[in-house]
Design a protein around this nucleic acid. Structure first.
Lengths: 231, 231
DNA sequence: AATTAAATTTAGACAAATCTAAAAATAGAT
DNA sequence: ATCTATTTTTAGATTTGTCTAAATTTAATT
């Protein structure tokens, strides 16, 4: 292997495992120069803290994270950029699966976890174009742009909306399969307009109007649905 | 890990490396119970014969190949089925890249090498459906069906066609990037009708008619183009 | 400030996939 | 039938990513 390739390998080629660590650290908030503990990362990734320590050293060597022994890790600028590019791929693939291949929103995550590691810049850009440059994935999470910008959402949890206000359902906080299946079964989908009719003091459940018909939902549901206020 | 998962791991979950070996053995003819030498496999995969020996033992343990020391390997029925499912995925993804994302036929192979390892039966079937169940990939190679059937092509090399016969260009024998780029540059594409006007005894070059206009091509080109005889 | 509990790291081991160098088996030529 | 030359395998080492168990550091409590 030539010197040049050694350079490339060390600084540009990411293994699947390294990519997964970066993604997890980002999701735990390590992009805001906040230190994330090895324990937190281990728990999230269902691995052991000692394995995380090993990887922390490796990513630190590569300049992707700042790592201080016993203090945890945070992403460097390059680390953030790399994490965002993986998240971008993940979310674009999710949109593709739902929009082009009729996957339901609880089926997409597992497959996208694999597809996000495919290495081809042209492929991602073309998928983006095919989907007409979507801004949000099927769970309502924003898709980072090619240059790593994140468009923030001006949204609220349904549980925080005042009585008589209304908005469009734009995302979920909990994207676990059981929750998504529950939403499907109750015909709650992204894009639906929801109006808060009443709140029950006793259990914080809500009476809402959606697509003309009234229904009652628990606080637990309302606290996991993001709504974009109409006005 | 439960007993059941151990079973699943040993007998169903294939690593990327295992899949690549099976695919290579199939392409070298190991599907016809012909023994393929470790040297041939090593050369094709750009690895060392000793590595192939290790993998041969492992695949043999799993019942995917028959391996006799010093004699080489051939695929078992299960091995053939597995190889075909990988080849099916590879070729479907190639069609997808060309038809839906405007990749050129010399760009698709490298990306398809990655995509072929994505594990989701639903994904493959849906891609197949989206493409309207194509029978051939962009290089003219047949796509195995879901149940592992291979439709054979009734085709000839252009170099073997008699004078004054004509046919439709359906595939390439050599699918290297330089050859594919050459074809692109000379406007030779799958689907074109080609008529053999004359053969030159001296160098075996051909005078052909394609899309109304005449041209001369070398024997080397003609010996790498598959044509389906019209009548 | 000392002690204890919790978190984190180190040291050493393991499995997968590869390699090199040496040993063994096969095939071809005389 | 024997002797080479080639092919193939073995044995042992390496890298990556993981683990367990022990040691170390930090944080919390009194």
């Amino acid at each position: 292997m030539s010197n040049k390739n050694v350079f490339l390998k060390k600084y540009f080629l990411m293994t699947r495992s390294e990519e997964n660590y970066l993604k997890t650290i980002f999701h735990l908030g390590g992009g805001d120069s906040k230190s994330i503990t090895t324990n937190a990362i281990a728990e999230q990734m269902e691995t052991k803290p000692s394995s995380v320590t090993d990887m922390a050293k490796k990513l630190s060597e590569k300049g992707l994270v700042d790592y201080v022994r016993y203090q945890g890790v945070s992403l460097t600028a390059v680390g953030v950029k790399t994490a965002l590019s993986i998240i971008r791929k993940h979310r674009l693939w999710e949109v593709f699966l739902v929009k082009k291949l009729d996957f339901t929103w609880d089926e997409v995550h597992e497959v996208a976890e694999q597809l996000e590691h495919i290495k081809s810049e042209k492929l991602v850009d073309k998928i983006d174009e095919l989907l007409d440059f979507p801004k949000y994935d099927p769970h309502g999470d924003p898709i980072p742009t090619k240059d790593g910008k994140f468009q923030e959402r001006d949204e609220k949890l349904l549980s925080e909306m005042p009585i008589n206000s209304q908005g469009v359902c734009v995302g979920v906080k909990d994207s676990s399969v059981p929750f998504l299946k529950f939403l499907d079964k109750n015909r709650i989908a992204l894009g639906n307009t929801i109006k808060v009719l009443d709140k029950e003091d006793f259990d914080n459940s809500l009476r809402i109007q959606m697509d003309g018909k009234e229904m009652r939902i628990s606080h637990q549901i309302a606290a996991n649905l993001y709504v974009k206020k109409n006005d």
